[in-house]
Structure formats: structure tokens, C-alpha cells
Design a protein around this nucleic acid. Structure first.
Length: 866
RNA sequence: GCCCGGAUGGUGGAAUUGGUAGACACACGGGACUUAAAAUCCCGAGGAUCCGCAAGGGUCCGUGCCGGUUCGACUCCGGCUCCGGGCACCA
């Protein structure tokens, strides 16, 4: 006797075992079938999976299983983004070694992922913290170094003087260290960089080719790269040698430049004031700006502030002598660190000029107004007609921009120029748990790359984790002390490790040959599998990860390792998983479970009994006490329910609002389906779904029609737009039709066949969403073959053909009646029927019909006069 | 400030090319089964209003707001409001 109740745990365990034993999802290259590479962003092994993972990987698994059933050779791998700070923090706080901590987490999370029934080829699993992986980070670094795409320079970083360590921007919270709350300083440090700017233009251009990416992400990347077309202009210094270089995009306003502004960090800043009365003031200003500047950058757009350097330069266009100022809003990192100030046509210069009473000269006249410097309350920054601009006066500003640029090149006063907001990628991290940068410093030979044969440079295990005093690698002498590869002399190893974004910039290539040991990946296999056809992950990686991965792909292509220009053809950025929150004004976020009171009378804080504000629906996070643990969910309802709910509750790109009742509903659907099949299993297993030569009643023909329409709908929803929620709704609808059809109990041969056909279709269609229960029910229907290998069902046009059509009849655009006509009825016939319908006629009496509009197979609109 | 999204019942969402707004699900209400409850099953439902003893039927309003195009607008166009996200002294 088969257990009648739906026990997801047993079923899921059974099928997961079968898939594992039969290696159902192991994959290899196969030139006879089209390939499909579907990839979800690999997780950081933080300890446990969260709902965001459940959603991400459920979506990916639907795609993978669907494409497999469509006959594609599907690559669907999984791995671990295993380097990173939390492992080191665990070491500092709890004395666990980062490696053991990470490995334990990986092991645990892997069993959690397996519990979800995800169809990965686990033989390709990788973890970026393994020497077999990170040695190739080092190898790639060396190749980039050879081509000057990796280089070292001094740059300023966030520095916590108490922890003696560098902080990432995210670790600086309101100007203080996230861990010890010491104010963060800026410090100049020698750091390694990747020259991503060498690819700025290609990275920008190729965005146009990424048609399968969301516009939002493309826009964010465009803004991030920030290409500006303009000119570099030389302003000769007065009474001394040299000139100041400025970058501007508005060379058409150069006649209105009445002063120059430099960044406080500008190399000439102090020199320009030397010997002038301004020397002391300038020095104080520079000092102050340096302290404040970056530590609080982005906090607010404070007052414009500056100081006169005491020196002048000449505007080459006007021949005028104009003062040089330092200004707090000029950034050394962008352009040349110097700008020509045109107060009339730049808001910042305008504010600055007002404050220091500098002249404002209008050189662009708008079409519909007359600008007077004394009356302006803000800069005029739009296009217009050039005035007071010598030979250029009278030109439209956009045209003038081109002419001025050509003119200054002719005169040798500068050149046309393009600048990017994008900066080179600093990859040095003063940390232990990352890829050691393969560089050796020798007093004699200088910077010496580690010879490729000596790779990998492995992390020493035995180091102290104190959280103080910089990288633990500095304390490990066997690691630190090496002999120079060139001169064999005493040398010192680089102790910085790489940014973990390096690891994730090429992992998708490693999967094609995860165990390959003579190069980062097997180029032949990469040529077969790449690019990734569908990449799926959170929108939080819209810029950094996705930009770095694109950069690496192009760089590796130029190294001759891969052929593709772009790594990811299609990108799906899934929404966040959210849930309602509860907040007490004194005790902050509360768990729903700890609330006192009730929904009806209002919730109260268990500690202070204050009314609790039912907060907004927010992204699940520990700090907001609104997380749901997937493990508990799966233990209570099974993986299929977890998958079904997350796929059904919202389309993937939108945020998903968690609902315990919604989960219940998903579970209820699976239970109903289960019970239906189990209750009829004998009769269904014995029956066939072959309908050839069968005479069917109208009801059965309808059910058959709905079956085929559902196949079509589900196929299109998955294929064209990943709208799994509507696909699932359609399957539910079909099931509702099946169960009400079976209710009357007549059970003719034809009926059993049609119902069996409907169920077979439903189960195959459900396989990508809820693979375990679908597999089990497939078996119950008497099927021998593995469900995941069954071809996706086709829909028959003939079976979908309507016999009767429901036509809506409108009068003046309002629905007034509905008529049913044979599917092959003529337009004339339909019009006649529509006009004859009693409900319609009431609106026609005494009126004259102006015209009748027909939408074939749908509607008739009778338009009356007036 | 600039750029990108979004706004539809009590709730999540559907309506794919301009053609019956509210599929599917949740929550809710009523009923059946039960000693009872849970579970399950059945029925109902956008709002207002009218007609009828009743089953039922009718009318008007309704997709953030205002206006436009159209026989017909959640969908297209113009102008706003609010919410979310990204960037933010980038010269």
C-alpha cells in the first residue's frame, strides 16, 4: 500500500539519491547538440544559505532543467567565492583558522544546496581559496604585469590607525572604523592596480551589443565609465615658466574663463604661492582640506571654499591675466586636477565666484532671454549662441565646441581629449585570506615577479590573527623571506593579497575545465562553452563584479586564451527577498515571534510594552530581524514547496515579498496534485493517453484543448520572459480543470485517457519547478524513463483549435453583451448575431448605427452616431 | 540635482501586438464533513447603487493625478504626484 499522504522529505531524499547515483547532471562537450551555459552567481560561504540564494538558484535551476529538456547540452556549475574578510574576522573573534572555517561552511552549505535538488554538475565545483584555483589568479596577474596592465603606484587609502589596517569604503561608516569606531585617516600607500582604463572605451562600446542585459545595468555601467569628450587646454603661467593643463568639456565657454581652480593636492599648489603674501594661507588650506577631504567624501556637498595662490596665468584666447585659486571641490583624481572656471556657465564656478567676488562673464546667450551677470542667480549651463568670443561669436555653442577644439590644436594651445570617470582598479588588500600577489622585492633588482614555475605562492597556514597591526603575513618569516629569483640575494615577498573581485572575474571560465592544471582553463573547452548564455544574480553586482568580469574576459582574449569579447550574453538581475518588519522606538527591530499583543489590538514591545510600529516590507537581513531560514522552511515543507513559492510569488526581476501563507498555498497545491494522482494511480498507470481515433465529448475536447494551450503558455512564459509565476498559474489552472472534470465520476475510457494526457503534460511542465514531486508522480503514472530526460512536450495546433468563440459585443465601447458563435463563422454572421442579441438591442433602439468594428475572434463594437 | 524603474481589489500579482481589467494564489465570508477542532471539499466576492419575494438581473464608477489621441486606453502621447533604486562637486 502506497503512502497516501504527501511526504516531501522522503520523496526528495529518494530522488536526490537517484540523481547522485546516476550522475544525472554530469555533462561534457558534445558537438552534436547545441550548448547552453546557465550560471548563477556563486555564493560566499558565510555558513548557511539564505533566501536570496534559494531564489537565485531556483531560478537558475528552472532554466537549466528546461533547456535540458529542450535538448540542449547544458552546463550548470556551482562553486564558492571563498576568500574574504568574514573568514578572517571569525579567526580574530573565535580563534578558528580561516581555512577551516571556510571549508566547514562550504561543506555545510553544499549539503543545503543539495537538499534543494539543484541540477548542478558537482564535479566542476571549485573554491577560490584553493591553491589550484588561486595559482591562476597569480598567473593571470603575471601576464597582466608583463603587458603593463598590472602596475604599482602610490595612492591614498582609508586607514584605521587603531587596527593598523586599510579599510574598504564600505567599512568606513560615517567617517569611523566599523570595528573600533576610531576616526579613519587617509594614508598614502603603494598599491597594485589593474589598468582597466586601457579597456574603458571597449567596455563602453560593447555595452551596445549586450541586448540581453537589463537597461538599468547598462545605464549604471555607462555612468560608471563616464566618458567625457572635451579638450585639454594649456594656460601659460604669468611671470614664470610652464603652463597649467586643464580638462574641460565646455571649451566653447573658454572666453568666459575668469580664473582657474586647482585641487589642493595639485603638485603646483604650494609652488605657486611660494614667496607671495598668500603662502601661509595656502599652506593652511591645503593641510585642512587633506584632512577633511576624503574621510568625509560624499557625505555632503558642503560650501564652496578656496584660496588665492598669489599667482596668475594667461587665458590664451583672451590674452587676459587671470588668478589661480585652490578650490575644495576640485578633485585631483579626475582630469588634470585643474579646471578653468567659467562662472557664468558652470554652477560650481558660479557659487565660487559669488563667494570670492570674482568676475562673471556671459559668453553663451540663451535663445529666449538676455543674461546679465549681475542679475543671475545661477549659472546658465545649457546650449545657446556664443557671444563675446572673438571669431567664434555668433556660433551655436555645440558647433563652437568643435571649432574651438580644432582651433586650439592648430595653435598648439592644447588638444582634443577624452576622459573617463572610471579609475584603475586597486587590487591590493592588506589581509591574509586572499590570493598572495606574486611579487618579490629585492634591494638590488627592485620589483621582481615570481617566476611562473614557482606558482602558486601559497598562503602559510601558521600565522597569528589578532586584528591589529596589518596583515598577518608580515609575521610569518618563512613566507616573507625569500631569495631574489634574479640575483639570489635576500629579498622580501609582497604581503598584500588580491581583492576578492579578482577571484570572481574569471571563475565562469574555470568551470569549463575545473581541474585543468596547465592553464587557467582549457581554451578548446572555453571555445565550446563560452559565452555564458544566461547569467543570474543580484543587482548589487551591476557595476563592480560585472564590469571586472567583462574586463578580464577582454584581457584574457588579448592574451590569446579565449575567443569571446563578452562573458555574459543574457543577464537576469533578480529582485530582493523582503519581509515585513516590526520596530519599537526604544528596542529597535523585533522578531515577529517575540511580539506581545495581537494583530487586531496592535502589537507591543515585549520589553517596554510600547506600541510597535509594523514597519515597511524590507529586504531580509539579520539586522532587521526579519529573516526566514531556508533550512527550516525546507524541513517543514520540503524543497519543492520552497522552490515553488519563490518562483510563484513574483516574477524573478521584481522584489519578492515573503508570505508564510503563500508558502502554505504552494504546499497545498502540491498536496492536492499528489493526492489526485495517488488516489487514481492504478487506473492511471494502466491507461494510455493515446487519443487517436477517439470520439470525445465536448467537455473532454475542452480539457484536451486546455492541456495544449497550457503547454504553449508555459513554454512561452519560460522561453521568452522567465515569467515563472504565470507559467505556474497556468499549470494550476489546468489542474483545477482536471479535478473538476474528474469529479462527476463517470470515468469513461476517453475521459481517463484525456485526464492522463493532461496529467502527463502537467508533470513534465512542472519538472523544472518542482523536480522531486514531479519525478515521483511521473513514476506513479507508470512511466519508466527518468523525467529530467523526457523531451519537453509539444503542443498541437489542431488540438488547440477552438470550436466556438465567445465574442464580446460593445456599443460605443462599452460591453453590452456576449455571444457564442462557431469558430468558422463569417464576419457578416457575427455582426448579425451581435445586432440580434437582446441585451445589445436595448441600446440600439431609436439610434442610428454609424459603423461596426470587428476584431476577429474577439469583439464587435457597434458605434452609434453622435 | 541628474539618470533608471515602479504605482492595478483586503494582499502578492495577471492582462504578451490598444480589444471582456482583476487570471492564479493568499487573506476573508458562508456552507459540507466532524462530538468538536484541524485538515479537506464546495460556494461567494472590485466599489457604489437600483429592480425583484426569490433565483437572478440592471446601471454607474473604477488600473496614482490632470489632460490628449482612438470606435475602444492599465497599455500610446503631453504635464504632474508619490515610492524605490543608482550616481552625485567628474570640470
Amino acid at each position: 500500500m502506497v503512502e497516501e499522504r504527501y511526504h516531501p522529505q522522503e520523496i526528495e531524499e529518494k530522488w536526490q539519491r537517484i540523481w547522485e547515483e546516476q550522475k544525472s547532471f554530469r555533462i561534457a562537450e558534445d558537438s552534436s547538440r547545441p550548448k547552453y551555459y546557465v550560471l548563477e552567481m556563486f555564493p560566499y560561504p558565510s555558513g548557511r544559505i539564505h533566501m536570496g540564494h534559494v531564489r537565485n538558484y531556483s531560478i537558475g535551476d528552472v532554466v537549466a532543467r528546461y533547456k535540458r529538456m529542450r535538448g540542449y547540452n547544458v552546463l550548470h556549475p556551482m562553486g564558492w567565492d571563498a576568500f574574504g574578510l568574514p573568514a578572517e574576522n571569525a579567526a580574530i573573534e573565535r580563534g578558528v583558522h580561516p581555512e577551516s572555517w571556510t571549508q566547514e561552511n562550504i561543506l555545510y552549505m553544499k549539503t543545503q544546496l543539495k537538499r534543494m535538488g539543484l541540477s548542478y554538475d558537482w564535479e566542476r565545483e571549485l573554491a577560490t581559496c584553493e591553491p589550484e584555483y588561486y595559482r591562476w589568479n597569480q598567473w593571470i596577474f603575471l601576464q597582466l604585469y608583463k603587458r603593463a596592465l598590472a602596475y604599482k603606484k602610490s595612492s591614498s587609502v582609508n586607514w584605521c590607525p587603531s587596527c593598523k589596517t586599510v579599510l574598504a569604503n564600505e567599512q568606513v561608516i560615517e567617517g569611523v572604523c566599523w570595528r573600533c569606531e576610531t576616526p579613519v585617516m587617509q594614508k598614502e600607500l603603494e598599491q597594485w592596480f589593474f589598468r582597466i582604463t586601457a579597456y574603458a572605451d571597449e567596455l563602453l562600446q560593447d555595452l551596445d551589443r549586450l541586448e540581453g542585459w537589463p537597461d538599468k545595468v547598462l545605464t549604471m555601467q555607462r555612468n560608471w565609465i563616464g566618458k567625457s569628450i572635451g579638450a585639454e587646454i594649456l594656460f601659460p603661467l604669468v611671470d614664470r615658466e610652464g603652463a597649467l593643463r586643464v580638462f574641460t568639456t565646455r571649451q566653447d565657454t573658454v572666453y568666459g574663463a575668469t580664473f582657474l581652480s586647482l585641487a589642493a593636492e595639485h603638485p603646483l599648489a604650494l609652488e605657486l604661492c611660494r614667496g607671495t603674501s598668500q603662502e601661509k594661507t595656502v599652506k593652511e588650506f591645503v593641510e585642512r582640506i587633506r584632512e577633511v577631504n576624503q574621510a568625509r567624501r560624499g557625505e555632503e556637498e558642503g560650501e564652496k571654499e578656496g584660496v588665492f595662490t598669489g599667482s596668475y596665468c594667461e587665458n590664451p584666447f583672451t590674452g587676459e591675466k587671470i588668478p589661480i585659486y585652490l578650490a575644495n571641490f576640485v578633485l585631483m583624481e579626475y582630469g588634470t586636477g585643474a579646471v578653468m572656471a567659467v562662472p557664468a556657465h558652470d554652477q560650481r564656478d558660479f557659487e565660487f565666484a559669488k563667494m570670492y567676488r570674482l568676475p562673471i562673464r556671459v559668453v553663451i546667450q540663451p535663445k529666449d532671454a538676455l543674461l546679465k551677470p549681475g542679475e543671475m542667480t545661477e549659472a546658465y549651463v545649457d546650449e545657446g549662441i556664443m557671444i563675446g568670443s572673438g571669431p567664434f561669436s555668433g556660433l551655436p555653442s555645440d558647433e563652437g565646441r568643435v571649432k574651438v577644439a580644432l582651433f586650439l590644436e592648430e595653435k598648439g594651445w592644447g588638444k582634443q581629449d577624452i576622459r573617463y570617470r572610471l579609475r584603475d582598479w586597486g587590487i591590493s588588500r592588506q589581509r591574509y585570506w586572499g590570493t598572495p600577489i606574486p611579487i618579490i622585492y629585492c634591494d638590488k633588482c627592485g620589483i621582481v615577479p615570481v617566476p611562473e614555475n614557482d606558482l602558486p605562492v601559497t598562503l602559510p597556514r601558521n600565522v597569528p590573527f589578532t586584528g591589529k597591526g596589518g596583515s598577518p603575513l608580515l609575521e610569518n618569516r618563512p613566507f616573507l623571506e625569500v631569495s631574489c629569483p634574479k640575483c639570489r640575494g635576500v629579498a622580501r615577498r609582497e604581503t598584500d593579497t588580491m581583492d576578492t573581485f579578482v577571484d570572481s572575474s574569471w571563475y565562469f571560465l574555470r568551470y569549463v575545465s575545473a581541474k585543468f592544471d596547465s592553464a587557467p582553463f582549457d581554451s578548446m573547452k572555453a571555445n565550446y562553452w563560452m559565452p555564458v548564455d544566461q547569467y543570474i544574480g543580484g543587482v548589487e553586482h551591476a557595476v563592480l563584479h560585472l564590469l571586472y568580469a567583462r574586463f578580464f574576459t577582454k584581457a584574457l582574449r588579448d592574451l590569446g586564451l579565449a575567443k569571446v569579447d563578452e562573458p555574459f550574453t543574457n543577464l537576469l538581475t533578480q529582485g530582493m527577498v523582503c519581509k515585513e518588519t516590526y520596530r519599537c522606538e526604544q528596542h529597535d527591530w523585533l522578531f515577529p515571534g517575540e511580539l506581545a499583543g495581537s494583530e487586531r489590538e496592535g502589537w507591543r514591545c515585549p520589553r517596554c510594552n510600547r506600541p510597535v510600529e509594523k514597519g515597511r516590507v524590507e529586504k531580509m537581513s539579520k539586522s532587521r530581524n526579519n529573516v526566514v531560514d531556508p533550512e527550516e522552511l525546507i524541513a517543514a515543507y520540503g524543497a519543492d514547496t520552497a522552490r515553488l513559492f519563490t518562483l510563484f510569488a513574483a516574477p524573478p526581476e521584481k522584489d519578492l515579498e515573503w508570505s508564510a501563507q503563500g508558502v502554505e498555498g504552494a504546499y497545498r497545491f502540491l498536496t492536492r496534485l499528489w493526492r489526485f494522482v495517488i488516489q487514481h494511480r492504478e487506473i492511471l498507470a494502466a491507461a494510455t493517453s493515446d487519443l487517436s481515433q477517439m470520439e470525445l465529448s465536448a467537455d473532454l475536447r475542452n480539457l484536451r484543448r486546455l492541456t495544449h494551450r497550457t503547454i504553449k503558455k508555459v513554454t512561452e512564459d519560460i522561453e521568452t520572459r522567465f515569467h515563472f509565476n504565470t507559467a505556474i498559474a497556468a499549470i494550476m489552472e489546468l489542474f483545477n480543470a482536471v479535478s473538476s472534470c474528474a469529479k462527476d465520476g463517470s470515468e469513461s475510457d476517453g475521459e481517463i485517457r484525456v485526464i492522463k494526457g493532461a496529467l502527463e503534460a502537467m508533470i513534465v511542465l512542472l519538472c523544472p519547478f518542482v523536480p522531486h514531486v514531479a519525478s515521483e508522480l511521473w513514476e506513479c503514472l507508470g512511466q519508466q524513463t527518468a523525467l529530467e530526460g523526457v523531451p519537453w512536450p509539444a503542443y498541437s495546433k489542431e488540438a488547440m483549435e477552438e470550436e466556438k468563440l465567445l465574442i464580446v459585443v460593445q456599443v460605443d465601447g462599452r460591453v453590452r453583451g456576449k455571444i457564442t458563435v462557431p469558430a468558422d463563422a463569417s464576419g457578416e454572421f457575427i455582426e448579425e448575431e451581435a445586432l440580434a442579441d437582446p441585451k445589445v438591442r436595448r441600446f440600439l433602439t431609436g439610434k442610428e448605427i454609424q459603423k461596426v468594428i470587428q476584431v476577429p475572434r474577439r469583439l464587435v463594437n457597434i458605434v452609434l452616431e453622435g
